[in-house]
Design a binder for these strands. Structure first.
Lengths: 291, 291
DNA sequence: TCATATCAATCGATAAAACCGATAACGAAA
DNA sequence: TTTCGTTATCGGTTTTATCGATTGATATGA
């Protein structure tokens, strides 16, 4: 039994299709077929049922999978551990972030790069849904978002809170509303709203607030790119709802508080529980939390 | 990185002596030396410090060891688990059964559990149609039913006959008919019948008998739960048609033979052909057949 | 100080195995 | 029935794991 075989097996089990699995593993289908067979021979029990053109996992396969997967992950964790042991002089950091937390991330990146110039940084903006998916696939080290992310998911996430920011009405500074100290939820009914698309954590939160308070404002624009959204709001026709923090560095936009409801959004660092945490991640988070 | 290398490494780390470790691993010292080196190359960091004729573990080696050891153990646990499965120390058995064969199943379950108390058993009562479907989807290990099941299906089923039982008229022991030695098919025309719903193998058989003999008795009640059916027959208003075996353990019901036609129903174990048969299934069937 | 014992590293050759492409075999779908 | 999508198998090639023999390094003891 070798890790190679376990890696092949887990992928095959996940896809239940040898051809596709082989392609993802960058080996030929024949190799995969042979390696699975040799693993089955060693275990003395079939891991898959072959029926016609399909394969199904057997009871033994299902049970064995748990061990195989853990084993592969453990080996990988060990590898990662050694990789960045001491050397924050190599390695790569992949950070997911919602646009609303850009202002928190930027200074931290600058500071981190000053301290550890050899660590490559990749920043990915996206919806929390998209990013949670990438996190689960180990394509991301951690993500920065508001904390009402997918909680129904089977695997567990670790939350480290950063700060809170109020959800506010965002309007152009030229708008009449910009003068007001605050508005009520009901005022929203008469405003044409431009909101982030489905999938953004803020949007999920907003929809929830609407539902609870039984109001259905006109959402006349949905868009999945926040800079563009801000640009459109700046132009004057629409208002939007975002956290106050989102526009903290925008001159031509004003955040008007929404009265009477709890609109506190908690920003947090989200990562996978029980997975080895890179040195670079630790160092980065130390900088981030210090602020 | 392969499990072989991790096995070599852990042993070497424990003994801090390549020559001895190699000997225990039944490989040459040169092989061990090379494999450790290739592991170190892949990790990009030395796991041992070579000082003169001695070796010492490095910090990286010490940390990596924890992962390597767990990984090796996990793989071994997975192996043992699968072996156990073959030895019936774990696992699950899902059995589908028509109500008419309950009396065959019960003692077999009791005996099986006595012999293999660690195997979980799940029993599903249902129509043969439903259960055949679940069998095809690998949600069931085998089913116990009368053998005129779906034969038109593309995939192939394996039948292992158990015994035969005559289809009889089932009446309350209080009924007048209960006294008779037998009745004819034509007598059925004048009786209000309560039959199992479509989908039950017995019902399929009954309908076939009616069709062949060109009679159309009054089916005044159809029901998809056999215990309830029996309860209603017991109350006295209806008669039913079921195998004699179905009422073998019922006091207040009598089975009256139907004359002049072949009403033999063959009970059988039905499973998928050409699919690996679990050890637990083999053991269970051995007990079932022995009776 | 020098010989010797004891270890790890290295080299070259060999055996094992992982791998690939081509093709067969199979069942499902058309 | 043919076609399509899939897995299994075969024969040949490449990679790599392994070995024995040798070298190099160093601790020990005469």
């Amino acid at each position: 039994m070798e890790l190679r075989q376990l890696r092949y097996f887990t992928r095959a089990k996940e896809l239940l299709n040898f051809t596709e699995a082989a392609s993802q593993l960058f080996i030929s289908q024949s190799t995969l077929s042979q390696q699975i067979k040799s693993l089955e021979d060693e275990l003395g029990i079939p891991l898959f049922n072959r029926v016609g053109k399909h394969i199904y996992i057997t009871e033994a396969g299902e049970l064995f999978y748990n061990y195989a997967l853990k084993c592969v992950h453990l080996a990988n964790d060990g590898y990662l551990l050694v990789q960045d042991l001491g050397n924050l002089h190599t390695g790569k950091l992949v950070i997911g972030v919602t646009f609303g937390l850009k202002h928190v991330l930027i200074p931290a990146i600058i500071e981190f790069n000053k301290q550890y110039p050899l660590v490559q940084i990749q920043v990915i903006f996206g919806t929390s849904t998209e990013m949670a998916e990438q996190l689960y696939q180990f394509k991301m080290d951690f993500l920065l978002t508001y904390d009402n992310v997918v909680n129904s998911n089977s695997r567990q996430l670790k939350y480290q809170p950063l700060f809170s920011s109020e959800l506010s009405l965002i309007v152009s500074s030229k708008s009449k509303i910009a003068q007001k100290n605050s508005i009520t939820l009901k005022d929203l009914n008469s405003l044409p709203l431009a909101l982030p698309a489905q999938g953004f954590s803020t949007r999920r939160f907003i929809d929830e607030v609407f539902r609870k308070n039984e109001i259905t404002p006109t959402v006349s624009l949905e868009i999945n790119d926040i800079p563009t959204l801000l640009e459109l709001v700046e132009a004057g026709s629409w208002s939007s709802i975002l956290t106050r923090a989102t526009v903290s560095d925008q001159k031509n936009l004003v955040a008007v508080p929404i009265r009477g409801i709890n609109t506190l959004q908690k920003a947090a660092v989200v990562s996978l529980k029980e997975v080895y945490e890179k040195q670079a991640v630790k160092a980065f988070l130390a900088i981030l939390m210090k602020k």
